[in-house]
Amino acid sequence: MRKYINWVLIGLGAFLLVAAILASTWASGAVKKTPTDTNSTTHLSGTAAKLNPGTGEVEDLKVKATSFTKTDSNASTDDVVVFTNVTCLMVDAPGVDDCVEDKDDPNLVNIPEPDVFATDRYDGKAVKNGKFVPSDAEQKEGLVNKFPFDTEKKDYKYWDGMIGRTVPAKYEGTEKIHGLETYKFNYTLSDMDAEVVSGIDGKYSMDKTMWIEPKTGAIIKQEQHEVRTFANGDPLLDMNLAFTDAQVKSNASDAKDNVSSLNLITGTVPLIGFILGPILLLMGGALLLLSRGTGRRSAG
């Protein structure tokens, strides 16, 4: 019976040591990848001063934006994930749906065409490859919908679709959100030339702040102030939008779970394996040698 215990200790020690080696080498790269089965809905709310083209007057509205993001698992690969995103902007009033298909609905403020893009599953940067993105789709660069795993305290290039290029998202410090440490990033644009309405050029300004959970790169909280005017300076849109409180709380909760899972795989498992594995191997080996020595003395 004692001999079996010795072999169990040796086997368990070897298993823990191998698990530690795999967790610290292969597993780290395997788990720090954007999943290809995402189907998420993000809720924002705020206010907008918007030009009513029918009356020519600027109307003050309470608005809500709902962003629908889904991955195409069939088009994605081990290294690249393909996304489709649609963001619907609606009047925020009782009984109004998050989105509608009827573009003549009076509660619909704006709904652009679906946006298809591909990003690297490791660093989050846009992939400019016709294999993944249709030739007629906008070719993006930089970060699009998340930051990289193990986000650093530095500036990153972030995509702005209105001007069709990247802008520097500047690191501004750390901040706790629902007990979760986040990195704060901001980018600001002022009076940029842009197509403010389909077929109409004008000026565009944006002040966007994002709070990022650094280990996963997830956007926990977001606030933005967007202004669009016609070329002559006449107002078209002045909008403040932010993740709803419920959305921020949900994001923080999900991020905590994801961080715990990553820490378990990349931290706890290797630590336990590298400490207990060799100890159990040595104990099992020593006890096995002792049992063999005892057996030979008994036989003599």
Score class of each variant (00 low, 15 high):
Met1Ser: 11
Met1Glu: 10
Lys3Thr: 14
Lys3Ile: 13
Lys3Gly: 12
Tyr4Leu: 15
Ile5Trp: 07
Ala14Gly: 09
Ala14Met: 15
Ile21Arg: 03
Ile21His: 03
Leu22Phe: 15
Val31Tyr: 06
Lys33Thr: 06
Lys33Phe: 01
Thr38Phe: 06
Asn39Ser: 12
Asn39Cys: 03
Thr41Gln: 11
Gly46Ile: 01
Thr47Phe: 03
Ala48Gly: 09
Ala49Val: 00
Val58Met: 07
Glu59Ala: 10
Leu61Gly: 05
Leu61Trp: 06
Lys64Cys: 04
Asp72Val: 05
Ser76Glu: 04
Asp78Cys: 06
Val91Leu: 09
Asp92Ser: 12
Asp92Asn: 15
Gly95Glu: 02
Asp97Pro: 00
Asp98Ile: 01
Asp98Tyr: 07
Glu101Lys: 15
Asp104Asn: 13
Asp105His: 06
Asn107Lys: 13
Ile111Glu: 08
Pro112Val: 00
Glu113His: 03
Asp115His: 03
Ala118Asn: 05
Thr119Met: 12
Arg121Ile: 00
Phe132Val: 04
Glu138Leu: 03
Leu143Ile: 09
Leu143Arg: 06
Val144Ala: 07
Asn145Leu: 10
Asn145Phe: 05
Phe147Arg: 00
Pro148Leu: 08
Phe149Ala: 02
Asp150Ile: 05
Lys154Asn: 07
Asp155Gly: 07
Tyr158His: 09
Trp159Gly: 06
Asp160Tyr: 04
Met162His: 04
Lys170Phe: 07
Gly173Gln: 14
Ile177Val: 14
Ile177Phe: 07
His178Asn: 14
Leu180Tyr: 07
Glu181Arg: 05
Thr182Gln: 02
Asn186Arg: 12
Tyr187Asn: 05
Ser190Ile: 09
Asp193Leu: 00
Asp193Gln: 02
Ala194Tyr: 00
Ala194Asp: 00
Lys208Ile: 07
Trp211Ser: 02
Glu213Trp: 03
Thr216Val: 04
Gly217Leu: 00
Ile220Tyr: 02
Glu223Asn: 15
Gln224His: 04
Gln224Tyr: 05
His225Leu: 04
Arg228His: 03
Arg228Asp: 01
Phe230Pro: 00
Ala231Asn: 09
Leu237Lys: 01
Asp238Asn: 15
Met239Thr: 02
Leu241Thr: 06
Phe243Tyr: 15
Ala246Trp: 06
Gln247Trp: 09
Ser250Met: 11
Lys256Arg: 12
Val259Asp: 04
Val259Asn: 10
Ser260Glu: 13
Ile265Ser: 07
Gly267Glu: 10
Gly267Tyr: 08
Pro270Asp: 09
Leu271Gly: 11
Leu271Pro: 04
Ile272Asp: 06
Gly273Pro: 05
Phe274Lys: 08
Gly284Glu: 08
Ala286Leu: 13
Ala286Gln: 10
Leu287Met: 15
Leu289Asn: 12
Gly293Trp: 12
Gly293Gln: 14
Arg296Tyr: 12
Gly300Phe: 05
Gly300Thr: 08
Gly300His: 08
